[in-house]
């Protein structure tokens, strides 16, 4: 085997391989998948000289630890966290050289949820439908990392930029999600529509790559019955029978039967992906562009 590989020493709570995902196959029931905090994944790639489509590692809350077989440049972006190489503190949000055989530890997130580990050359697992992303809903792509997994790396594409520390937005203390109403806002009572944008929800610990679940006041429907299954978009705010809004993330099902009260602006989804359980959430209605 080539020595361009990462040995996974500690997989962490949930670490997956992610790139830009596999859009374009929703009509076959294939979720788009891909990094939940797209700007952070893009930054991790840029810092190590990769193209935006290179695959990175996406960690969840408690990081991961890997040992490259040969010397590589890495960068950790997204949720702020301690980063060490063989126990010595190194920079977060900047390119770091990790000697072959050394241990790169990405620690628990100080704030936020998901850290992105870019490695020069990118993670080079076999793509499925043009993407290396792990899709937790449908099981496409590589399985989540486990201790002892060996991940192949691609060849470096060019010199990485000279950056000391790249500025990144802090994970939100309060998550404000701009929404445009519909397509199924008419399924809810006027009171529920007011509640949705007037009250504060909290991020539920049941959130995952499929959706940001919330806790808070239940939204009452204006009509009984079921909606025939219909196509779903990224950022759709679906309201299941318990009345608590769920914001769809990249591994969302391609069709669904619960009414969508509103849709979150794409640009707000990165912050949503970094909102830890318990974070207050407000939905703010904005005019459609």
């Amino acid at each position: 085997m080539t020595d361009r590989a990462l040995f996974v020493v500690r997989a962490g709570a949930l670490t997956t391989v992610q790139d830009l995902g596999r859009p374009g196959h929703a009509h076959l029931g294939v979720p788009r998948s891909g990094a939940l905090d797209g700007p952070a994944a893009a930054l991790a790639n840029r810092l190590v000289g990769n193209r935006p489509g290179a695959a990175v590692l996406e960690t969840t809350l408690n990081g991961c630890a890997v040992r490259p077989r040969s010397t590589v440049t890495v960068a950790v972006a997204g949720a702020p966290c301690p980063v060490t190489v063989d126990g010595h503190a190194v920079a977060w949000g900047a390119p770091v050289r990790v000697p072959g055989g050394a241990l790169l530890e990405v620690g628990a997130a100080v704030s936020g949820v998901r850290a992105y580990v870019g490695v020069c050359g990118g993670v080079a697992v076999e793509p499925v439908l043009g993407s290396r992303s792990t899709d937790l809903l449908s099981g496409l792509g590589p399985p989540p990392l486990t201790d002892g997994t060996v991940l192949p790396l691609g060849n470096p594409e060019g010199p990485h930029p000279r950056v000391d520390v790249a500025p990144q937005p802090a994970p939100p203390a309060e998550l404000v999600l701009r929404v445009t109403p519909g397509p199924r806002d008419d399924w809810f009572t006027p009171q529920a529509l007011r509640t949705f944008t007037a009250r504060t929800y909290r991020v539920s610990s049941a959130s995952n790559r499929i959706g940001l679940r919330t806790e808070g006041p239940a939204l009452e429907r204006a009509r009984p019955g079921e909606l025939p299954s219909e196509g779903m978009v990224l950022g759709a705010v679906q309201v299941p029978p318990d009345g608590r809004p769920v914001v769809f993330f990249a591994d969302h099902p391609t069709t669904g039967g619960y009414p969508v009260i509103a849709v979150v602006r794409d640009r707000d989804l990165a912050a949503a992906a970094q909102a830890a359980p318990g974070t207050p959430v407000r939905f703010v209605e904005v005019r459609r562009r």
């Binding site: 374009g24 929703a26 009509h27 025939p228 196509g231 779903m232 069709t255």
Partner: peptide
Amino acid sequence: VREIVPAARTVLLDG
């Protein structure tokens, strides 16, 4: 368009 997703009584056009 990026996605054309037919369903029971609808067609979604995304992108």
